[in-house]
């Protein structure tokens, strides 16, 4: 899976550079988030700007990352969701769980 990782002010930004986040590739994202938290990162922002499609496995990978953040006393937030992707969070009530920001910079200001 194509992930671009940057660090800004102690926040790790994972840019998911894929059109689909699904059962085929979401395991890679889950593993990467787990690795980052285990190596000591506390704050992760997952930027979904390029993701046009998410399925239940993609949502599950993000939930896994969120739970990892809690267990490591950190934070996991999301930014720049496309409309259809956002609607999947709403359908599964996950928009109440995640902090979701409309832009990367707004998300970075809220850690």
């Amino acid at each position: 899976m194509n992930l671009k990782i940057e660090k800004k002010n102690e926040i790790v930004i994972i840019y998911v550079k894929e059109e689909r986040l699904d059962a085929h590739n979401s395991g890679d994202l889950k593993t990467e988030m787990q690795r980052l938290f285990e190596e000591g990162s506390k704050n992760i922002l997952v930027d979904l700007h390029d993701v046009r499609f998410i399925d239940s496995s993609g949502l599950g990978a993000l939930v896994s990352g969120f739970k990892n953040a809690i267990s490591h006393h950190g934070n996991l937030k999301l930014s720049t969701l496309q409309t259809q992707v956002k609607s999947m969070f709403e359908l599964t009530r996950l928009h109440r769980v995640f902090e979701i920001y409309t832009s990367t910079s707004e998300a970075l200001d809220n850690f």
Partner: peptide
């Protein structure tokens, strides 16, 4: 159906189809 009070990694696929 998924329990929305519990944060599970899995168990949303059939729910999405049914929805």
């Amino acid at each position: 159906p998924p329990d929305f009070t519990q944060l599970e990694d899995r168990g949303r696929g059939i729910f999405l189809i049914r929805s």
